[in-house]
Nucleic acid binder design. Structure first.
Length: 362
RNA sequence: GGGGUCGUGGCCUAGUCCGGAAGGGCAGCGGGCUCCAGACUCGCCGAUCGUGCGUUCAAAUCGCACCGACCCCA
């Protein structure tokens, strides 16, 4: 197993990651402090680890200012795996009524992705922003900014850059000799994004929901936060979303279900590619039953699309005892996804009309 | 500015020294088997060999120039 911000390899052992990264498990004690209603990724165990989430909740309980931040590197269109992340900041905004910051690192993706032209990055950035906001973020409590557009952030980035040595960047961010020098500055930008709520609102606790593979950035940012008189950002770690073709694969994959896919495409992809936990034949399936824990359709229902706990349990039960076939499960899953995407596109259009309410520009 | 390495299907790579029909792996696609998917199995597509010129009967292979990526030094 190897988990870095740049690459995820092998079968992932989350307990081991907690140990390796030095984070804290999101145990039941802390879990029960979280307010209802929780969306599937939060209530069904996709969030498994954290740093200082307890402090963030304390601060909230004490009536102190708290914010939430989840960024996005716009290197491609967005697929359903991405939704599981942004459901988390949305939850905190809905339930804890806090401001959510969404920094979009168009510059980073431009530096790092060999074949991405500046126009591509800008196109993906604008496209991704609409998809994220379409999840229902509150225009009055959501701040989106792009590095190519909100360039005033540079003043802060410079201050952060001065506090990060080359050795640190090299060690934490995996810089290699052949990387262009954009890579060298990017860690400063990333840290600035994470500290940005404090730069503009004053010191307070910011919670940063991220995939566990991105944790090294948080660690590095925590190391320098106090040099600015800021609080170390808290974080809540999400497991990696399963790929369509197998739960072990990382989320960035071919054959993902894009948020822009139409109904037929979705049905096709699921039927044709989605890894199942079913048995090789109906007869065997009826006898032995299926395994929902490795079934991608089920996992996506569990982690995102099925809000109803009873319904999910019933599906799991029926699948395990063999009365529900993989094809039937897929049929239900397809319907859920398509219903979601239909609604998503409707919200996206509304967001597009009001985009100025969200964007922080110079 | 000086010196050097490299450029082969979408990706990785063999072949380059010692010229002679461009091979493999992954991915992709189709069929079979399956309630689907995966495993498995059968099969298929796909390469201006960075570009140009030259040497030669013959150039991915040799020479020169250019383009591009990268490394070391300044």
């Amino acid at each position: 197993m190897s988990v870095t911000p740049w690459e995820v390899e092998g079968e992932i052992n989350y307990d081991k990651l907690i140990e390796e990264f030095g984070t804290r498990p999101l145990d039941s004690h802390l879990f029960y402090r979280l307010k209802d209603p929780m969306p599937p990724p939060v209530k069904r165990g996709m969030c498994f680890s954290h740093r200082d989430l307890d402090k963030w909740l304390d601060a909230y309980d004490n009536g102190e200012k708290v914010t939430v931040l989840s960024g996005r590197g716009p290197s491609e269109k967005m697929h359903i795996g991405h939704l599981t992340l942004y459901a988390i900041p949305k939850y905190f905004q809905d339930v804890y009524k806090c401001t959510v910051y969404i920094p979009v690192s168009d510059d980073e993706k431009f530096y790092v992705k060999e074949n991405l032209e500046i126009e591509d990055v800008e196109m993906f950035a604008n496209d991704n922003i609409l998809d994220i906001l379409a999840m229902g973020f509150d225009p009055n409590k959501t701040i989106v900014h792009k590095d190519f557009e909100h360039t005033k952030i540079y003043k802060y980035a410079a201050q952060v850059a001065k506090k990060i040595t080359y050795s640190t960047a090299k060690a934490v961010f995996g810089l290699k000799a052949e990387n262009n020098i954009g890579w060298v500055f990017y860690p400063a930008m990333q840290a600035t994004h994470i500290l940005y709520p404090q730069f503009i609102e004053g010191q307070h606790l910011t919670l940063v929901p991220i995939g566990i593979d991105q944790d090294p950035f948080i660690r590095a940012t925590r190391d320098i936060a106090e040099k600015f008189g800021f609080q170390k950002p808290a974080t809540i770690h999400k497991k990696l979303a399963p790929g369509l073709e197998g739960p072990k694969m990382s989320s960035s994959g071919k054959n993902a279900i894009w948020l822009s896919d139409d109904e037929d495409t979705v049905a096709n992809k699921v039927n044709k590619y989605a890894f199942s936990g079913g048995q090789p034949s109906i007869k065997e399936h009826r006898e032995k039953g299926g395994n929902p824990d490795i079934d991608v359709s089920f996992l996506y229902l569990k982690y995102f699309f099925e809000e109803d706990d009873n319904k999910l349990e019933q599906i799991a039960r029926d699948y395990r005892d063999g009365s529900l076939l993989s094809g039937e499960l897929k049929e239900y899953f397809i319907e859920k996804v398509n219903n979601y995407l239909k609604e998503h596109r409707r919200r996206r259009e509304i967001v597009a009309k009001n985009i100025d309410k969200y964007m922080l520009r110079d």
